[in-house]
Every structure is written in structure tokens, then in C-alpha cells.
Measured scan of single mutants.
Amino acid sequence: MKGKVVSYLAAKKYGFIQGDDGESYFLHFSELLDKKDEGKLVKGSMVHFDPTPTPKGLAAKAISLPLE
């Protein structure tokens, strides 16, 4: 699924993505496929991810940034 980063707290390594389906997904650095892309996780960045339901809500897994 595609989505847009709505927040990312680099110090805490987490944030949120708004998916194309309108839902909010929890984003964690550990799910970023290329850790070098962390600096690109800023508000408004477009990402691809696997939407995954968890006991705490919806989460983004296997997060990647589109090729530039």
C-alpha cells in the first residue's frame, strides 16, 4: 500500500503514516527495509508498506521509500 508520513519522531524511532485507504498506521524504524532511508522519513514523504493489524491497532510493516 502507498501512504504519506504524517509524523516521525527520530529520537524515539516511531511515527505515523496515513494510508491511501485513509487509515492511520504506526510506523517504527525497525520496519524500514533500508535503514539509510531514515533521514527521508519526514512529514509528507511518500512510502510503500504492508498494512498489518496488531493487537494495538494498525501497523506499517516492510516500509520502503519510492525510487527517486
Rank of each mutant, 00 (worst) to 15 (best):
K56S: 09
M1P: 03
D20N: 09
L58G: 04
D50W: 15
A10P: 15
D34M: 06
A11W: 12
D21C: 04
H28I: 05
K13M: 06
L65V: 14
V6K: 13
L9D: 15
L32V: 04
E23F: 14
V47E: 01
L33R: 10
K36S: 13
L33S: 06
L41W: 01
L67S: 13
G57I: 03
G44A: 04
H28Y: 07
L58D: 03
L32E: 00
G19C: 03
E31R: 05
K35Q: 09
K40G: 07
S24R: 14
V47Y: 01
F26L: 06
G19I: 02
G39N: 12
K40M: 09
G44I: 02
K13P: 01
V5T: 03
E31L: 04
I17V: 07
F16M: 07
K36R: 13
G44P: 02
G19Q: 00
P51W: 09
K43G: 06
V5C: 03
G19R: 00
S7I: 15
F26I: 06
S30W: 08
I63G: 01
L58H: 07
D37W: 08
G39L: 13
T52M: 14
P53K: 14
Q18G: 05
L58Q: 06
P53V: 14
V5H: 01
L67T: 13
F49K: 01
T54W: 06
A10H: 11
F26A: 03
T52R: 10
A59Q: 13
Y14L: 04
K36M: 11
K56T: 08
F29P: 06
K13A: 05
P66H: 15
H28D: 06
K40S: 07
H28C: 08
K40T: 04
Y25L: 01
K40W: 07
S24K: 13
K4R: 14
A11H: 13
K2F: 13
H48L: 15
G57P: 03
A11S: 13
P55A: 10
H28L: 07
Y14E: 05
S64A: 09
D34W: 06
L65I: 13
D50A: 13
G22M: 06
L9Q: 12
D21R: 03
L65Q: 04
D34G: 04
F16C: 07
I17P: 01
V5I: 11
D37Q: 11
A59V: 15
Y14K: 04
L9S: 15
L27P: 00
V42I: 12
A11T: 12
F29S: 07
D50H: 15
P53T: 13
A62Y: 11
K13W: 04
L67I: 12
